Computed example of a mutant assay.
Amino acid sequence: MVSTLKTALVPGGSRGLGLLVSRELLDRGFAVAIAARDDAELARARDQLSEHGTVKDYVCDVRDTEAVQGLVHDVERDLGPIDVLITVAGIIQTGPLEAVTLEHFRDAIDTMTYGPIHCALAVLPSMRGRRSGRIGTVASVGGLVSPPHLLPYATAKFGAVGFSEGLAVALAGSGVTATTIAPGLMRTGSHERAFFTGQSEKEYAWFGTAASLPVLSMNAERAARIVVAGVLAGKPTVLVGWLPKVAHRVHGLAPGLTTRAMGIANRLLPGARPEQSDLREGREAASGLNSKVVKVLTTLGSKAARKNNERG
């Protein structure tokens, strides 16, 4: 049965920022389709979101172009033409270069560069035919400035920024807009689902703390409101929080200085254990660390993780 509401598709809508973006769209009167790889996670998200409006969930891996095309077909069959696409799906891999493998790069690029490409190209024919549509790609401050110990992530996010900005240019005058979204750190609880390599417990300690403390990280509900408002307004770029705004300006004015500053930060972070290139999820790394101090510092992040379906 086709919905009479406008339809939004949110790949990566089962948890974290994607869940909050989906909720914001529902509160604005959209029927929302959420997609992710984990059907149990999707079911929990659907139950959580259903009190806000019409929501359907679909299992889909954005790395697979045929699966994404099938997803778009199914959503349009069930809910009607897709008016808004906001691609949030992503992974975080944290660790020093010496502990990073080529497979880590492949997974990051397939998910966060090719994922938005697959999704945008799948919805575009219908949107262009109707001369109406909004496409948002959630990149990151890590797609503006490459932060230390996040090289696969930054590589993929830089690709997403290039694609989304180029897409906005290519769609000029078509009635369809493309918005590049660059958030900074947000208290979504994603540090518990991030992956860490090298000295994974120490990597978790700095990243989890940064992603949980006020000032360094922003309220995720507010971030979701900014994201959705920017996409619906058809803005070409949305910088979410103070960190991307500062990074964008400083890097633009003094790129060499920015790179050197990131290099200094890199030297302050945990060193490598070259034999350790396996990835450990944040929850596992936190258990191995077993630090009362880090538990206190990540209190707000842990609260967000419980709230935003970051835990099974």
Score class of each variant (00 low, 15 high):
Pro148Cys: 12
Arg15His: 13
Ser3Ile: 09
Ser164Val: 06
Glu201Thr: 14
Ala211Ser: 08
Ala304Leu: 14
Ala40Ser: 12
Lys157Asp: 06
Leu297Tyr: 05
Leu5Ser: 11
His104Cys: 10
Leu5Asn: 12
Gly18Ser: 08
Gln48Arg: 10
Phe207Asp: 09
Ser140Ala: 03
Ala305Leu: 10
Ala272His: 04
Ser277Ile: 01
Thr188Arg: 03
Gln276Pro: 11
Arg222His: 02
Gly288Ser: 15
Arg306Ser: 13
Arg222Val: 00
Pro214Gly: 09
Ala211Ile: 01
Val72Trp: 00
Ser22Val: 04
Leu297Thr: 06
Gly13Asp: 02
Ala305Phe: 12
Ser212His: 12
His52Gln: 11
Phe207Gln: 13
Ser212Cys: 02
Val138Ser: 07
Cys60His: 04
Arg134Gln: 05
Ala160Trp: 02
Leu85Gly: 04
His191Leu: 02
Pro147Thr: 00
Asp64Leu: 13
Gly53Pro: 08
Val176Tyr: 14
Thr237Trp: 04
Ala168Ile: 00
Val55Leu: 14
Arg260Thr: 09
Val240Tyr: 07
Ala305Asp: 09
Lys295Gly: 15
Arg63Val: 06
Ser14Met: 15
Pro152Phe: 10
Gly208Thr: 02
Asp47Ser: 13
Ser164Glu: 13
Ile82Thr: 01
Glu76Trp: 02
His118Val: 10
Ala160Phe: 08
Thr188His: 08
Arg63Gly: 11
Val141Lys: 00
Leu20Ala: 07
Val228Met: 14
Val141His: 00
Ala31Asn: 01
Thr87Tyr: 09
Pro96Thr: 03
Met262Ala: 13
Gly129Met: 03
Gly312Phe: 07
